[in-house]
């Protein structure tokens, strides 16, 4: 299905060179924005927000746990969609974005799981509680590992990209099914546990830093994605003349 579109801007968007040069300029601003958001969010959340009535100060872990799990789940969809774009329009850059999104998503899911486990200790007295949210997060981590591990079955890059895209699409269809079935399973066994993400019912100045942190995590995700994608472009496009020229006339560039 070589369904090639003639929309020039769409194709220009797809060229790794255009992406590399464009992001060259965005990177410093994005880094500063991410740092600012994360620092303000954390300082506000950890130091200034009032503690929760029941849980006391351990609720402050919400400022790491919730943003990480939200962005990790969104990251899976971003990975699957860029894989689908790569499959349909056969744009190599979107395969590279998919390949870079996998480790970032897995790392954020890992953060969500660890912070969730640590949070469980003071509130429920056990490091691991089979709460619906945490169990689904654990399955999501294995989905990520599956996409990352699939790379090694294929010797050439094109096949590995397409297989990764197919698997992440299959995963994308399954993620809502998994989340709903785990929720249903939870009602079957432990109806009366507090819900983790009771965000909207929180006190406004507890909720405000959370929003800042979520935006901070999204910009962190895009920063990491761009960095990974740039490394991937250099790794795979090493034959292209613009890459060689880039390397020769700026060997000292960071």
């Amino acid at each position: 299905m070589n369904f090639n579109l003639q929309w020039t801007w769409f194709h220009r968007l797809g060229s790794p060179r255009w992406f590399y040069q464009k992001t060259q300029r965005w990177l410093p601003w994005l880094a500063i924005a991410t740092l600012a958001l994360l620092v303000t969010g954390l300082v506000w959340g950890l130091a200034f927000a009032p503690p929760d009535a029941k849980q006391g100060n351990s609720f402050r872990i919400i400022y790491l746990h919730v943003p990480a799990s939200v962005v990790a789940l969104a990251g899976y969809y971003i990975m699957a969609i860029s894989g689908a774009v790569g499959l349909i329009w056969r744009i190599k850059l979107s395969f590279m974005l998919m390949r870079s999104a996998a480790p970032i998503g897995a790392a954020l899911t890992f953060i969500a799981l660890v912070t969730g486990a640590i949070w469980g200790k003071p509130t429920w007295g056990a490091y691991w509680v089979w709460d619906a949210r945490i169990t689904s997060m654990l399955i999501l981590l294995f989905l990520y590992f599956g996409v990352i591990a699939l790379r090694h079955t294929y010797s050439n890059n094109e096949a590995a990209d397409k297989a990764g895209a197919v698997l992440s699409l299959v995963g994308m269809v399954n993620v809502p099914i998994i989340y709903k079935s785990v929720d249903w399973w939870q009602t079957l066994h432990q109806p009366a546990t507090i819900k983790f993400t009771g965000a909207p019912s929180m006190h406004p100045d507890m909720f405000a830093p959370l929003v800042v942190m979520i935006i901070g995590f999204y910009s962190f995700y895009s920063l990491a994605l761009i960095l990974f994608a740039r490394a991937e472009i250099l790794r795979r496009e090493y034959r292209a003349s613009w890459v060689r020229q880039l390397v020769t006339n700026q060997p000292a560039e960071k």
Binding site: I139, L150, I177
Partner: peptide, 9 residues
């Protein structure tokens, strides 16, 4: 590894 998460439901 690939198939187990999809078997959960």
């Amino acid at each position: 590894l690939l198939v187990m998460p999809l078997y959960m439901p």
